[in-house]
Design a protein around this nucleic acid. Structure first.
Lengths: 325, 325
DNA sequence: TTGAAAGCGCTAACAT
DNA sequence: ATGTTAGCGCTTTCAA
């Protein structure tokens, strides 16, 4: 009834538990006959090696963590999916925690991962108001994804540079004759919010158009935020094109746009952010700024394995891509 | 440099590791002064309790597993999200494995979860050809989600009954004057595929319409399958309405429909399956069959905690709901 | 109030 | 080829 261990099997067979251990760990020094008997009995009893015991002996637990704000956002879902595939390929177990961008939750999750000795953690750092306390990461390898928090060079980091794509998007719109281009993005609380807005401004400047302040709106990014700001811009009547700087925002703004058949017929142009699968077929294809998610996940998985912890932490940047549909 | 344990702290402070243990576990029998000193030092050194040691002593590991075909499908993503929230609330760690509906992968994942002594696993069983071997679940509580595999009453099960909603969908279409209703769904490999098609047929019968065999198509469910079958049905010209029996299929078929402006203007009616967020705003709102995902996740989390393992395994069924937009 | 010993499951290092 | 011992980090039991 209780858990089957090597001792259970050993007693059952009237031999030493060491022989059982050897047999089940493919150690050469076991007589074939004995080994077969052991393997057979282990199988019958449903024996599985106790991971906790292995960890206590010093084996690195085959566990990695993933901390995401949520997993409904298609960007995060795809990343989690790709990372999970990589982990399964490496026989790693992936523990997911959702932080909801709350530093408290994030800290708690990190501590739990530390308790189970997770070897690595991929983390989208929650934006933090103060440079407040943070639990030490212990022996975990922490890989920061998308956002960068705290001291640079401290942790390996995987970033996305969407600047060029955003500037290209503006240029594309200008080339098509638009000069009243609206922008909806995240506020300056997040570094990504700042960076994208800056890229938008720079793109406009480079393309030689002036952006009316009224056409730029920022806020805490969410679907409903994107939707309401989108409605406001469409109602304003000034803008002839809209660029979004965030996945949720983009979906929200697109939903607002879909409400307005007139605008679509008038040739109002929309460029979204992220590339949810339905963008390729909604509204005859939605142009967007695509982030190479699978590449990010692959790189993260590579970092799991990277042996050397010495030297400055690597910082990899992947380019987002403008997709015109 | 090496891992901080209670012994590290004990040596550091020149006391017994037992006192340290007591202090850090809020045992009353420690002098306040000593306790404060210990807690302080533990904090400085970044001590965390070793989960493996606790598990070895007999503590149930705070780990639960989740096995899903994938996590990009919005249905699964939402479920995973909701379950992760529940787990965080209960200080459980959630290990996710993606099976891709492959029994081999599923078995391997289950074994890994067994090694780390996961207390419970929520599992969308991969459809299995033969009633072949399956690793014993050991002491894990296995909760089957959506699909049921193997012997009934063996595991707690959470099912969705979409029969009434599917029949209501057919009735709705008939009431609106449609009598050439097409259906795209999963083939009979999965029990859900069979059940939904049967519900569709029954609904048609109850509504007094005959379904032309040509208008029913099934196959291995996927976006592209839904899309190509959708195109075929639209090209056929016979059908005036389409009902889908699967999430991916529904998205694919919807994408096919969006390609055809004519059909939409002609009043071609579509009822999808699942309720991706964008259904509420695409195409002025897509009618669909909604599955109560959060309720499923909440119930699953409740089952994590259920103490009694005695008696027949509970089988909970949640009703899907027809949403007309 | 504090400490010492034992044991959870496993394997490296020594016996035999 | 097989067996014995010890120890990973922790807490329960018993002793001081």
């Amino acid at each position: 009834m209780s858990r089957v261990t090597i001792k259970t099997i050993a007693n059952d067979l009237g031999i030493s538990h060491m022989t059982v251990s050897r047999a089940l760990s493919d150690h050469p020094n076991v007589q074939k006959e004995t080994r077969d008997k052991i393997v057979k009995r282990a199988d019958e009893l449903g024996y599985v090696k106790n991971a906790a015991a292995m960890v206590m002996r010093g084996d690195a637990p085959k566990i990695v963590g993933l901390l995401l704000p949520n997993i409904v956002n298609e960007f995060y879902a795809r990343f989690a999916n790709d990372l999970a595939v990589e982990c399964d390929a490496q026989s790693l177990q992936l523990i997911i925690h959702l932080t909801n961008d709350d530093t408290t939750v994030e800290q708690k999750a990190l501590e739990q991962l530390r308790q189970v000795q997770a070897s690595s953690v991929v983390l989208v750092p929650a934006p933090r108001r103060s440079t407040g306390d943070r639990t030490p990461y212990g022996r975990m390898r922490v890989i920061e994804l998308i956002r960068q928090s705290g001291t640079p060079d401290q942790h390996p980091t995987i970033l996305v540079d969407d600047g060029p794509a955003i500037r290209a998007a503006v240029k594309h719109l200008v080339d098509k004759g638009h000069d009243k281009i609206a922008y909806i993005g995240a506020n300056r609380d997040m570094s990504s919010g700042r960076a994208r807005l800056d890229a938008f401004r720079l793109g406009a400047k480079q393309a030689g158009v002036e952006i009316l302040p009224d056409l730029i709106s920022t806020g805490v990014p969410s679907f409903s935020m994107g939707r309401s700001h989108g409605h406001a811009i469409l109602a304003g009547g000034t803008a002839t094109a809209l660029l979004c700087g965030g996945v949720e925002i983009s979906n929200g703004a697109l939903s607002a746009l879909m409400d307005s058949k007139t605008k679509l017929d008038e040739g109002f142009e929309f460029i979204g952010y992220g590339d949810p699968s339905f963008y390729s077929w909604v509204n005859n294809g939605v142009s967007t700024i695509r982030v190479p998610i699978t590449e990010l996940a692959t790189r993260a998985a590579e970092m799991f394995l990277a042996a050397d912890l010495s030297g400055p932490a690597p910082k990899d940047t992947f380019l987002a891509e403008l997709i015109i549909r």
